[in-house]
Write a protein that binds this DNA or RNA. Sequence first.
DNA 1: ACCTGAACACCGTTCAAGT
DNA 2: ACCTGAACACCGTTCAAGT
Lengths: 244, 244
Amino acid sequence: MSAKQPKSGNKGKKTPEDAPGAVWFRAEKTSRTGPQLSHERIVATAVELLDRDGVQKLSMRRLAERLGAHATSLYWHVATKDDLLDLALDAVFAELDLPGEHSAAWQDDIEAFMTGLRSVLLRHPWAAALAGSRPLMGPSALRASEFTYTALTTGGFEGVHLSSAAATLTHYVLGSASSEAVWRERSDEAATRSAVDAHLRARIDEYPTLAGHFPLLDEDDWDAHFHRGMRLLLAGLASSEARG
Amino acid sequence: MSAKQPKSGNKGKKTPEDAPGAVWFRAEKTSRTGPQLSHERIVATAVELLDRDGVQKLSMRRLAERLGAHATSLYWHVATKDDLLDLALDAVFAELDLPGEHSAAWQDDIEAFMTGLRSVLLRHPWAAALAGSRPLMGPSALRASEFTYTALTTGGFEGVHLSSAAATLTHYVLGSASSEAVWRERSDEAATRSAVDAHLRARIDEYPTLAGHFPLLDEDDWDAHFHRGMRLLLAGLASSEARG
DNA sequence: ACCTGAACACCGTTCAAGT
DNA sequence: ACCTGAACACCGTTCAAGT
């Protein structure tokens, strides 16, 4: 059905470009529907669509349409949709701006990593949940890991304690960013929150401690919430026990 | 096409139950293809399928087939597939076995929560990633939160520090379980790991610290890895700074 | 009250064919 | 080398109709 009404195609239309002599005025080889497909353009557009509509709405067909191409053409450039998601995710990590040189206090580097990663993840609300569900092995993710490993090494972490500390920090950033993103994505955060709050208060026998403590009724608290968790982690890192 | 070859249906087949007089031997009103649908049976079967085939493979049609019903029938019991996933997830949290009474040392309760949650999540490898990507507001998840909030209150946490500490612990368990599950799901974990290791070593200029520290080449290290992160968090909780 | 059947508007991916 | 077109085997969900 939808194939019968060409939306962005150009077959069958008589355009000035078809007129005799038009060869001379036509652009050389480049496709008429925009720039050619390329690995980079596909990934960049995927990120754009993911930002706008979320991960559930991204399809190869919608992506292709936006690129002025057919869905099947994408498969010349990327193997699967899953690969594309990995590429889009690493593109987000590529936005992470880490200090060029390591600072005197290694804790400052850890803070820079954590707050920096959090803010790129919040710029792309689909990214944190995705990052939590697959290995992060892209070059930009590895670059970020390298930075963290170096800072922690300066802090005295070695061997297995090094990887455990790094993983713990990363899990915290991904987890808190994901949870923040998912709450903020719903337009009615405040309404949902007070509904949950009411629900808990109505069952105060079951949830005596939880009711009344349901977090973050104020929107601006997200930032402070993140920083409190980060301080807890930094305090944990400071403890010699963590180093073995 | 697929509708023309009845796979598990029973229309058109002559069975002994169709024979004259068979009325008397037939079960009363119950459907022929198994017990009737119910909220509980749908959720339990969904968990079963998720355990076996993962979240990507779960569809309303496959689930219905396994229940001996049609996909559309499920919609009388659950509103959407998304709701069903929330229900399945809370069913996993329901398996979490928490101490009946709180122990003398609140840290032991925190440990019990963390290790307990980790093990139910690893029993259902799809669960951790899902839990990280949506609010956990089911009754069993709330029960677990109540337990943690109570333990932390005993530990001296109050107000915003209480929710921040609780969230930090939860993010760690979900993140580490998710990452462990995703690595273990691939049949060739060892092979993948040494491929990554080789990749890093080949780029030792870019990743001087990371190369050679790529974690967990031994499978049994997952457990110790988790416990090291947990100790780091407990050390963080112990620091007075975390309480305000 | 509970379930079916048909239908709608989609999916990811393969592959021969075009340029 | 890069892209199209047709096709395959699926999806979630709605809704009128059956019992």
